[in-house]
Simulated assay, not measured.
Amino acid sequence: MKKLACILLVAIALISCNKEEKKDYVTLSGKIINATSDSLVVAQRAIIKSIKVNQDGTFSDTLKVASGNYVLFDGQEQANIYLENGFDLKITIDTNAFDQSIHYEGVGEDVNNYLAKKVLLQERLLDYDDLMASDKSEFENKLGSSIAEFKALLNEVSKDNVAFIANEEKGFKMIEEHLKSAYSKNNEPSPFNGKVAPKFNDYENYAGGSTSLDDLKGKYVYIDLWATWCGPCKAEIPALKRVEKAYHGKNIAFVSISLDSPKAYDKWKAMVKEKELTGVQLYAKGDQKFARDFKVNTIPRFILIDPNGIVVNDNAPRPSSKQLTKIFDRLEI
């Protein structure tokens, strides 16, 4: 009897060891190669935690969280991260290839490696301008195969993550519905294409003097409506500079019109100088008529006008889209 009691006590002890109580905090540790900042920041609507990065790139810290999606910042770089108390994640990153290199090991690795791969998959599959330029059958095939790939990737996540998987599946549905709605709207007949373009007059030119649309007649005009406060606008700047350089000297003018308010005038001038913006840089001086005439409600907005002042496309592809140079080549610019 004593022997049986001892065996039971040992069994209970082993079970207790195997069922170690879940920690009520997250542990984040790892190493950053080519670190661009002295700290990692975990944020949601506000900063949740700032984690010190040592000189050798290593870091380690803990934090308590409500389960959910967060953003991990290293300087200007960022990654989506999913956290639950009890996660113990070792993270490795090379900032020279941030999205491609980020990798997780430990408790919670499957969810977060999925999120890292999802970003790369989005970049490869969801070329917005390419989808919008497809015919209906091609659009449906591309969208259907893309959603199928996302769902296949989600299968890598442990089935124990019920709430996370359900939320991702809901997100796939929302993406699909959004793109179908955008495609339908994008393919409605434009009230502008093929007609004389509305004009802007005497907008201040950063290079000196003022410029009107009529001054550019005889050339194709690719117009970028933007503002210094607009993140997506600024994200297009590197691509716009590359395209402008590739077509420099051709029969096309690249015109960027700042829609900043008059109080942001100095900020506009400073940004043009700081980012070494190319092409024709104009300031609308608070005049919104040209944007209103084109019914612009979001920026950036790109408009292509032909040498006779006729609108080719009032919602032209962005500089970062492969479709833009295809249009230029078709027009033999």
Rank of each mutant, 00 (worst) to 15 (best):
A5W: 07
L8A: 14
L14A: 12
L14E: 11
K19T: 13
E20H: 08
E20Y: 06
V26Q: 09
T27R: 05
L28E: 08
L28M: 12
G30K: 13
T36V: 14
A43T: 14
I48R: 10
N54V: 03
Q55F: 10
G57T: 14
L63T: 12
K64S: 14
V65N: 14
V65E: 13
N69A: 11
Y70H: 09
Q76P: 03
Q78K: 15
A79W: 04
Y82N: 04
Y82Q: 04
L83I: 06
F87G: 02
K90P: 01
T92Y: 07
N96I: 00
D99H: 10
S101I: 07
H103P: 04
E105H: 04
G108L: 12
A116Q: 12
V119L: 09
L121S: 12
R124S: 14
D130G: 13
M132W: 00
S134R: 07
S137G: 04
F139E: 03
K142A: 10
E149H: 10
E156Y: 00
S158E: 11
D160S: 14
A163L: 11
A163I: 12
F164H: 04
A166V: 08
E169D: 13
K170S: 15
M174I: 15
I175P: 06
L179I: 03
L179C: 02
S181W: 08
S181C: 04
A182E: 11
K185N: 10
N186C: 01
N187V: 02
N193Y: 02
N193D: 11
G194P: 07
N201I: 03
D202H: 13
Y206E: 03
G218R: 02
Y222Q: 10
Y222R: 10
L225V: 12
W229Y: 07
G231K: 15
R242N: 15
A246D: 10
A246Y: 00
G249P: 09
K250I: 01
I257M: 01
L259N: 02
L259F: 00
D260R: 01
Y265P: 00
D266N: 15
W268E: 02
W268Q: 01
L277A: 11
Q281N: 15
L282D: 15
Y283M: 09
Y283I: 05
F294H: 05
K295D: 10
D306L: 01
G309K: 14
N313C: 02
P317H: 05
R318K: 15
R318T: 08
S321Q: 01
Q323M: 05
Q323S: 03
T325L: 05
